[in-house]
Amino acid sequence: MNNGSEMRRIVTAWVIVSVIGDLLWWFLVGPHVPPGNMTTSAHWNQFDFNILAITALPVVFMVWIWLGYAVVKWRDKPGVPEPLGGEAAKASRGVQVGWITITSTVVIAAAIYGTVALIGDHGSGGGEGPNPVWAPPGAIAANTAALAGKATWSPTGNQPLVVQVIAQQWKFTYRYPAFGGMETDRLVLPVKTVVVFDVTSLDVIHDFWAYQLSVKADANPGVNNVAFANTQQTGQFMVRCDELCGIWHGAMYNSGRVLSKTAFMAWATKTEAQNAQNTAFLPPFAWTYTPDANGASGGLYPDGNVTPYSPYDVYGAKQPAS
């Protein structure tokens, strides 16, 4: 068998397998790939995953078919011709240049596509730190308003909803500045709404992972990590801690719900009234909270100028005068 027909066989097998594999993936597996369609980021992240998958599958099949063919045919057994030797076996300019060009193209295309997807989808639900660079329209304004105590939300308008996620060892709680700054231990969201998550932590690094929402943001102590989601479907979702945070890390999960706008409004007003007594004791809504010597949330170290902090009080007179 000559060289050409051998290559033709391999390529034919590869094309057939790749096309079948890609079609199967796209139509059978793809629609079921998590995280689903609960938010726009979930939808686009699923789409990205599938795009990468159908790009990756032909690569995988190429290597596997090549390996398989080599093991079966180019093997030390009677009747197999002597191995290729000499310069042809050492290098082939065409193959090398082709390989480098194709891999570079694919890789750079993947990076460009990833960037477009990331920016177009407003950070894809990932935590963007205290100053998000890719935000949905109105989200930053809503978030700034929340700090000033002017957050509002109503089922009729189209405002983004600001929710603060506070992680601590080993639970998540959520504050709703639009509803009097109430704090709940259950995450409830309205559908068809841009949600701004302000993720922070009281102790160690946690990670807020709302799985079906496709939101993941590290909860760092003393840092506000902002992520966005645009809810599209009602239903239940899972919240897990995704960064090792100590011995009960494995048990740090709960679930949340996306409700219709009116149902959410009803829940929120009811809960706000129920929690009013507790809310009165909470510190004012802020990006971060630092528990001081009096215990969690008893007071604030300065983030802004809430309480002036004097190191001299803490460290005594050993400080040199400025």
């Binding site: 060289n3 051998e6 290597v63 090549w66 390996l67 080599a70 093991v71 180019w74 093997r75 030390d76 197999v80 011709p81 002597e82 191995p83 290729l84 076996a89 082939s92 193959v95 090398q96 390989w99 480098i100 891999t103 570079s104 890789v107 750079i108 993947a110 990076a111 990833g114 960037t115 990331l118």
Partner: peptide, 29 residues
């Protein structure tokens, strides 16, 4: 993201080398 994906180019070289070395060899398993 770009630098990370770029690293798969030199990693891919390893596969080029490996696959090229298998080509029409006389493999002893």
């Amino acid at each position: 993201m770009l630098t990370t994906e770029l690293i798969s180019i030199p990693t891919g070289f390893i596969y080029l080398v490996g696959m090229g070395s298998l080509y029409r060899g006389k493999m002893r398993l």
